[in-house]
């Protein structure tokens, strides 16, 4: 069974159950997405993918709206462009997007997003994890609020910098029903003070986290990062242009998860799994994700490159 919709005047047939995003993509219409990922349930929260559907009072999220026979869809109208621009501006004016997916800066340009027009961003605050629903300190009007805050570094495997969090819910989904079924993190708080949190903001080592790293893999902004990547960036040694990605199979058990080993200076600096891999859907366990140290001897006297020095320092902690 298939359904036929009209997109920008063009008739498009897609399989029954396909979304408007699927239809747009089949026509190669560039549609920005931030909270959508093929291997997760759509939460339709970011609203950057909105399109205009004839007969609908508001714009609709393409990522989650099923295509229906006869739908007339516009993706290039001023209304669509305006909302996409505003969503991008809102995020860029409140979140550090410096390590976000490169597509994002492209969309910022396409839609003419100008975060500077909101005024001076507020400096980092320490209290975001302790704000109470329904009670925020009234705005002064001098600065514009941001989510800037100190990074959380509480274990040797990965770190969290929620200054970079756009609250796309992807990590929560990956940790929960969509993959890991661990439920170590959830959205807490409300409104602008909503945040990703463990219970009572306890450190990851005190939480239910099993360090599978699946949340890192789905995070679009680099808010969640391998400690190795974070420390290499801090030391200004991280260089993606010099990295190789080697696909292999995890050697720990018989499931056959595919791994992508990201190496720089012949050292593994991070591990991912292809999202379209039938075994993993991009998800791994702690062993495949982080258990690679045995293949590189950092204690060796010969391990003296800048990468070695940084990686050793992480391990020592």
């Amino acid at each position: 069974m298939s359904v036929t919709v009209t997109i920008n005047g063009q008739s498009v047939s897609v399989p029954d159950g396909a979304t408007l995003l699927d239809a747009c993509r089949s026509e190669e219409i560039d549609t920005p997405t931030l909270c959508y990922l093929e291997n997760l349930t759509p939460v339709n929260a970011c609203r950057v993918c909105v399109v205009e559907v004839e007969g609908s009072r508001t714009l609709v999220p393409a990522c989650s709206r099923p295509a229906e026979d006869g739908m007339v869809v516009q993706t290039e109208t001023d209304r669509v462009k305006h909302s996409r621009k505003m969503v991008l501006e809102f995020l860029a004016s409140s979140v550090d997007l410096s390590t976000a997916d490169s597509a994002l800066s492209g969309w910022m340009e396409t839609y003419g997003a100008d975060p500077s027009r909101y005024g001076t961003p507020a400096p980092p605050t320490e209290d975001r994890d302790h704000r109470h629903a329904g009670h925020h300190a009234a705005a002064s009007g001098e600065v514009t609020e941001t989510v800037a805050q100190p990074p959380k570094i509480d274990n040797g495997l990965y770190m969290r910098d929620y200054s970079k969090c756009i609250l796309c819910y992807k990590c929560v989904e990956a940790c929960g029903e969509d993959a890991q079924n661990t439920f170590a993190i959830a959205v807490a708080g409300r409104g602008f003070d909503a945040r990703i949190s463990t219970e009572f903001d306890v450190g990851l080592t005190e939480s239910a986290c099993v360090f599978c790293g699946n949340c890192i893999a789905v995070c679009p902004t680099g808010a969640l990062m391998f400690r190795s990547e974070y420390e290499l960036r801090q030391a200004d040694v991280w260089n993606e242009d010099e990295q190789n990605v080697t696909r292999t199979i995890c050697s720990y058990c018989g499931v056959g998860c595919n791994l992508e080993l990201h190496t720089q200076d012949n050292r593994i600096v991070k591990v991912t799994s292809p999202m379209d891999h039938s075994v993993t859907d991009g998800h791994l366990c702690i062993k495949g994700r982080f258990g690679y140290e045995y293949v590189q001897n950092l204690e060796d006297d010969l391990a003296t490159t800048p990468v070695d020095v940084v990686l050793r320092s992480v391990r020592g902690r």
Binding site: A45, S94, G141
Partner: peptide, 28 residues
Amino acid sequence: FRDESCGQCVPCRVGTARIEENLARKLN
């Protein structure tokens, strides 16, 4: 609205904060 927004979607989560800031700028 800034207090009562659930915070789920970007337009309302950030938009309500920006509106309040704008009015506070004038008020203060």
